[in-house]
Design a protein around this nucleic acid. Structure first.
Length: 572
RNA sequence: CGGGGCGUAGCGCAGUUUGGCUAGCGCGCCUGCCUUGGGAGCAGGAGGUCGGAGGUUCAAAUCCUCUCGCCCCGACCA
């Protein structure tokens, strides 16, 4: 491609809409333009990159035995109702009525559609197992789209769904997908880590997330750098805290804490550490209020709470309920004298002489102790792991960091096949629910997270596998006939190699502009036809990532480039 | 959805507090000259319903009301 014939609108200045490096660079390098909040147009080199990523995904999916389908973006609402996910998606779902008044949604994901197809077309164990996948745009009305294509209202996802006759089969299908994911992300040149995840609202039990470590990531990763344990925040566990003081219980004491409601306010006021306080949170579970006790500096993990209660969902009690149950406004609840079921986090069970609300307005209690002052009905792990917690496996200190989720694999089991009646007859003629798995990849996110990890002050640094062009030829002076002739002949020679994408910067621009632009858009190899060429007929070759330069005679350029491409292919 | 901020040329911004001449600057763009190894220089030029609607006023980018859009923090998040 000749630069003058395509559209690569580079910008010298960062657009004000962008906050993070990848977003700025995608705009500055002319990959994308925002059309409206959370929706982006991909410009020529943007779609080149996107297509390369998609091709890698497709190749590895096919290699893993998955079968591609193409599904509608328009979905009838009744299917989502049938699976019970209409409420779960809630306002994230983009819905409208067609001219006949029929309610339609733009698909936020496609479990229901796939399951619907499979239940209609597959009835026998002889047709199983099968894994179907699609690469398509999905729509979610995100409350706050941000970070460019990292969180947008429409985005491209690869979604695969596996259907097996039994759990053994599911394990196999899952492993195929897991392995394929590793290959895909490896090929895209990404540094990623795999963490155990909670399967959350998708249902099912085993799940892994593929994460690119990044401070701009919206997910929190808990990792043990010693033994390799890694999990996301919802899933992560920590070693139980030990009772470290054998302090004798002091006398219970009531203190006045006028208008001090939060842990922060009370701990400042009483001059004690938040970790010497207990916070009491009232939840509604199964229609009944229950009290959850947490250490003051800990936060409730509702995923774990939900599981501990064996419920589908729990919700915080409203203020009125709290007043009714505790006899005090929000901010003064405590376990002493409370007449509801009490579940304590493990960290609470080892505390002595702590402070907590007195269930009386403007009053807290000091030197509260378990057993003596109140009893708990259940101890469970209910909180998020924080810095300082120890690894549940090897007791080494856990690392807390951030990451961008680029892929997620789930063992769903029969959640959707039960709900949507996707059944088959086994060899013995018995009807059974299909065992499902589902596997997603955020295609746009691959690009953004790659840039997030692979750029420098001059711009993007593409890996060979997904770069829009492998080589950029820069004739320094396009008005010099010999230079242009050389540029054109190199362009033809290199382009004739299948699989080598060449960009020729034929613009009549000053060299500085061309070098800056080539760096900005991140092309791995530059071929420069300039001073050296006019003087000695030598051609300069420069590597974007390392800045290494080579001089080659004109007849050697092609083989030199081929050699460099081979080397770059192998290095990440 | 709560809090904060911003909308002025393709991009980045000043001007708004305290209303007042023809609305400015940098980049980019067009023409010419010059220049050709890391975002050159000189000269000339095009480009604006100041987000929109209504109001106050002799006079509104500037003040008031409403509205739309966008960004940030938080909440939310298969």
């Amino acid at each position: 491609m000749k630069w003058s014939q395509t559209l690569i609108p580079t910008l010298k200045e960062s657009p004000s809409e962008a906050e993070i490096d990848s977003h700025k660079l995608m705009i500055r390098a002319g990959l994308i333009r925002r059309i409206t909040a959370g929706a982006y147009a991909y410009l020529p080199i943007g779609i080149l990159v996107l297509n390369k990523v998609i091709n890698i995904v497709r190749e590895e999916m096919n290699r893993a035995g998955a079968i591609e389908v193409f599904l509608p973006a328009l979905q009838p609402l009744d299917l989502l109702e049938e699976s019970g996910r209409l409420n779960i998606f809630g306002d994230d779902l983009i819905t409208f009525e067609d001219r006949h008044g029929k309610k339609v949604a733009l698909g936020p994901t496609h479990e229901e559609i796939i399951t619907d197809i499979v239940r209609n077309e597959i009835n026998s164990y002889r047709q199983l197992p099968i894994t179907l996948y699609q690469i398509q745009t999905k729509f979610r009305d995100e409350t706050r789209p941000r970070f460019g294509v990292l969180r947008s209202k429409e985005f491209i996802m690869k979604d695969a769904y596996s259907f097996d006759v039994d759990y053994e089969g599911l394990n196999k299908s899952y492993q195929y997908m897991y392995d394929a994911y590793c290959k895909i992300f490896d090929r895209c040149g990404l540094d990623y880590i795999v963490v155990e995840a909670d399967s959350g609202a998708m249902g099912g039990d085993v799940s892994h997330e593929f994460m690119v470590p990044s401070p701009v990531g919206e997910d929190i990763l808990i990792r043990c750098l010693k033994c390799g344990y890694s999990a996301n925040r919802e899933r992560a566990e920590s070693a139980p805290l030990l009772s470290d003081n054998h302090a004798t219980p002091h006398n219970l004491e009531e203190v006045s804490t006028p208008d001090k409601r939060t842990i922060q306010e009370v701990s400042n006021f009483l001059k004690i550490s938040p970790s010497q306080m207990i916070k009491t949170m009232l939840y509604i579970s199964n229609g009944q209020p229950i009290a959850i006790l947490l250490r003051g500096d800990h936060e409730v993990n509702e995923t774990k709470l939900t599981k501990a209660l064996g419920q589908e969902a729990v919700a915080l009690a409203d203020h009125k309920t709290i007043e009714r149950i505790t006899g005090a406004p929000v901010g003064f609840a405590g376990p002493v004298g409370l007449k509801v079921k009490i579940i304590a986090d493990q960290a609470v069970s080892v505390l002595k002489n702590f402070a907590t609300g007195a269930n009386k307005p403007d009053t807290h209690l000091m030197n509260v102790n378990l057993e003596r002052d109140f009893k708990i009905d259940q101890v469970a792990h209910l909180r998020y792991v924080i810095k300082g917690d120890k690894c549940p496996r090897c007791n080494h200190e856990l690392d807390v960091s951030q990451g961008i989720e680029i892929g997620h694999v789930f063992k769903l089991g029969t959640k959707y096949s039960d709900a949507l009646k996707a059944r088959f007859l086994d060899a013995g003629g018995r009807e059974k629910s299909m065992i499902m798995g589902c596997y997603g990849i955020g295609v746009n996110r691959i690009i953004a997270s790659l840039i997030e990890r692979s750029h420098d002050e001059n711009g993007i640094v593409w890996p060979l596998s997904i770069t829009p062009y492998h080589v950029i030829i820069i004739p320094v002076n396009v008005n010099d006939n010999q230079s242009m002739h050389m540029a054109n002949s190199l362009y033809s020679a290199l382009s004739s190699n299948t699989g080598t994408d060449v960009l020729l910067d034929d613009r009549d621009q000053r060299p500085g502009v061309k070098f800056k632009d080539a760096d900005l858009i991140g092309i791995p190899i530059k071929i420069i036809i300039g001073k050296k060429f006019t003087e000695t007929k030598e051609i300069e070759i420069k590597i974007r990532k390392t800045g290494e330069t080579f001089l080659a005679k004109q007849e050697d350029v092609k083989s030199k480039i081929e050699g460099l491409l081979e080397i770059l292919k192998k290095t990440r």
